[in-house]
Amino acid sequence: MARASSNRRKTVVTVLAWAIGLLIFFPILWTVLTSFKTEAEAVASPPSFINFHWTLENYAEVQSRSDYFRHFLNSVVISLGSTVLGLIIAIPAAWSMAFVPAKRTKDILMWMLSTKMLPPVGVLIPIYLIFRDIGLLDSLLGLIIVLMLINLPIIIWMLFTYFREIPGEILEAARMDGAGLKAELLYVLTPMAVPGIASTLLLNIILAWNEAFWTLNLTAAKAAPLTAFIASYSSPEGLFYAKLSAASTMAIAPILILGWFSQKQLVRGLTFGAVK
């Protein structure tokens, strides 16, 4: 490759990459734009790109008609609740596997991963019936428990890969320096583990926020998070493009922003540490 042409090459690559990037991003961009249009403009032919009458009334309408905010709160409670609960159970488990590995540690980890492969329909009916009988159907608590369980393997794996990177010599150094178990936890382990725990938290909030099998099947009205809220637009309200767009924008915006911050951790978390 001639180095002299590298600038021209860079230009070509830039143009191509931006074109593809914008193409992939376009449906999201179009949704956001449409959310600021009136219904008439939203279906106008030919459609206008930015040259339209910008309005916020769709957002007001979505909120007043279907109570966006309540569903948003449900999503927050479910995703945060299931993640925090999962972390409480996963941190000691990942911790012990990373620092006191036994002969069966690898087997246990692989088995945990395999539970992730159990198709949800295999257990849908019993969970549905159990929840119906003990009153967890359409409840936030029920969803918190289910989502915690389905994401637990991922949480444990992610934490395990982070914890394993904390060098054992550091813990030994702390012990030589006279740190007891409490001081070791407080001054050495926790500060070193916090970044890993934070990334795990972030990724799992995203996964739980977007989970759309259990949230759709186990909720009706009361506990419905945003996934179910949007599903109610499938017909015929979906034909009101501007309102659909406003509702969609509000459903994805918070997590899109979180997601952009957690790109790196996403790769690691979702590949069970196999790709970093």
Partner: peptide
């Protein structure tokens, strides 16, 4: 006796410094 109580100090191969301090 626990390591800390033996009155010994150790310098590790990887130095084992606390990265956050």
């Amino acid at each position: 006796t626990a390591p800390a109580k033996r009155g010994l100090a150790m310098v590790f191969q990887s130095y084992a410094l606390y990265p956050h301090m």
